[in-house]
């Protein structure tokens, strides 16, 4: 207790002391606190930074690995694609080469066959030559025909001339114009004149106007086959003499249609014709030309014997039909005996 008392006795001092000391320390307290904080913050900062640096290192490593992995993967893909395109290009070029060859071959063989074309063109030119020749020949023939016709015409003209000049022919007594006695041979005209027949005198020209008119009446297609009386008579008609009937009556008489009797209308050889017609009709109905021979021996001597086609052939008679009727193969027979038909009664 003493202690307590002592302490209590000293408490005032202690209080003073406490106060005093506190006031001394208070002066430095903030500064020290600040310094401590600074030191701590610096240290802690260092620590954290070191840690972060450490983490960064790790992260870099991870990223490096990951990225390299991804890169490798992508690279592989690219390589694959490049390889594929290269391959496809190669295949394509190869396919083009094959197709080119094939198409060329096919088109040359079937479409633009050079040799075929050559041949065709050759054929065409040959045909052309043939046609040209034929046409040339045709034209020549035509020309020849024409020349011949010209010659003939000229010949005719000359003949006519000779006939016209026939009076210039020399007689026994007097030589003609073309037969000069001072020449060794007579002129060719003289010979021609000798051959020619003199022209006869021309007949006086008969006026046919009237008859033409009449014929034109006759050939009318319609009702007026003869002139009707109300039409005026033709002008150039000669004046008739004597008492004649009326013109229209005469014409009617003249041009009325012919009405022959039955005896005249029928031909005189009618019976003969009827027989002929009958015979012809029979001929049409005949089946064959050969005359049917009756069943008697009378004709046999007259008619020639006709052998049948089989026996008269120079290749010999065929055995088929009278010696055998079907193919025979003895090896296939079961036995050599004939097949006997058993008749059951």
């Amino acid at each position: 207790m003493a202690t307590l008392a002592r302490l209590q006795g000293r408490s005032a001092v202690i209080r003073n002391q406490y106060y005093y000391r506190n006031s001394v320390v208070n002066q430095f307290r903030k500064k020290e606190n600040d310094a401590a904080i600074k030191i701590q913050s610096w240290f802690r900062g260092c620590k954290v930074r070191a840690y972060i640096r450490y983490l960064y290192k790790k992260v870099t490593i991870i990223q490096k690995w990951w990225r390299s992995y991804l890169g490798r993967q992508q690279y592989q893909l690219m390589v694959k694609v490049a390889y594929y395109t290269m391959k496809m290009n190669l295949y394509n070029t190869m396919a083009v080469r094959i197709q080119r060859r094939w198409r060329g071959y096919r088109i040359r063989k079937y479409c633009f066959n050079y040799y075929y074309l050559k041949e065709y063109l050759k054929a065409v030119s040959e045909t052309n030559d043939v046609i040209r020749e034929a046409l040339e020949e045709f034209a020549e023939m035509k020309e020849k025909e024409e020349r011949k016709a010209d010659l003939e015409r000229e010949e005719k003209k000359r003949d006519y001339q000779a006939r016209k000049m026939h009076y210039l022919l020399s007689t026994k007594q007097i030589p003609g114009v073309y037969n000069s006695p001072f020449r060794r041979e007579p002129d060719p005209w003289e010979l021609q004149l000798q051959k020619a027949k003199p022209l006869t005198h021309r007949k006086p020209n008969i006026k046919q106007k009237c008859s033409i008119n009449l014929s034109s009446w006759l050939e009318c297609t319609r009702s007026r086959s003869f002139p009707q009386s109300e039409i005026l008579p033709p002008i150039n008609r000669k004046q008739c003499q004597g008492p004649f009937r009326d013109l229209s009556e005469v014409l009617q008489q003249r041009y009325k249609p012919l009405e022959p009797t039955l005896r005249v209308a029928e031909p005189i050889s009618e019976l003969k014709e009827a027989r002929e017609a009958f015979r012809r009709e029979e001929l049409v109905l005949n089946i064959h030309e050969n005359v049917f021979l009756p069943f008697s021996t009378y004709h046999k001597n007259k008619e020639k014997y006709r052998p049948s086609v089989h026996s008269s052939s120079k290749y010999g008679a065929a055995s088929y039909g009278h010696q055998h009727f079907r193919d025979e193969n003895p090896q296939k027979w079961v036995n050599s005996k004939c097949y006997v038909l058993m008749l059951l009664t």
Binding site: T127, I131, L135
Partner: peptide
């Protein structure tokens, strides 16, 4: 052409 018509026409 096959009938030789072209040659004839040209002539």
């Amino acid at each position: 052409v096959n009938a030789g018509g072209v040659a004839a026409v040209i002539d």
